[in-house]
């Protein structure tokens, strides 16, 4: 009788232990992996806040050494091809901002050793607005903007 109860107790605690491990694995792993994801910057509703959160500064200087390529007119705001290049040395990161979006910061690319300051991707644009590229160097932030006319917004339902 006593022995049987002991079995049940053991089983119960083992079960709870297993759930604990599963929860731990399921919840903690992604968070650990994504520790670097700058949530506040991506949730910011204006460019200055986003840049401060992401790069600790919103002091951007317009520069012709940052080249941004995007269409003049985007028929579909859900897919706007954007390419950013720079011929400045020592580029640390490139960020892409769609200034008309609810949360303007779209993407930020951290360049590793050997990377060429070049990125190309496709972004969503809610409405006609500037696409802004911000290039981070040791000497500060350089930027360029390109107006894109959007005929159908990409962020609505």
């Amino acid at each position: 009788m006593i022995d049987a109860k002991r079995r049940i107790l053991l089983k119960g605690s083992l079960g709870a232990g297993a759930i604990g491990v599963a929860l731990g694995a399921g919840l903690l792993t992604p968070r650990a992996v994504l520790a670097d994801w700058p949530e506040a910057a991506f949730k910011a509703e204006d460019q200055a806040t986003a840049l401060k959160e992401l790069l600790d500064s919103d002091a951007v200087e317009a520069s012709d050494k940052v080249m941004i390529k995007a269409p003049d007119i985007a028929e579909n705001g859900a897919v706007v091809p954007v390419t950013v290049e720079s011929d400045v040395d020592g580029v640390e990161s490139i960020s892409i901002i769609a200034s008309g979006n609810n949360t303007p910061l779209v993407a930020s690319f951290e360049l590793g050793e050997g990377a060429v300051p070049f990125v190309s991707t496709r972004i969503k644009m809610a409405k006609t607005a500037d696409v802004v590229a911000v290039v981070q160097t040791a000497d500060g932030l350089l930027s360029a903007a390109k107006p894109v006319k959007v005929t159908i917004g990409g962020c609505g339902g």
Partner: peptide, 28 residues
């Protein structure tokens, strides 16, 4: 990664288009 070297880390929001396209370059 190129071999074991991280050449680029991209941080994205939902503002990147569906079925994302990404292009980049590196020396070497």
């Amino acid at each position: 990664k190129w071999k074991d070297q991280v050449v680029m880390t991209a941080l994205w929001s939902g503002g990147v288009s569906k079925n994302p396209y990404l292009s980049f370059k590196f020396n070497g």
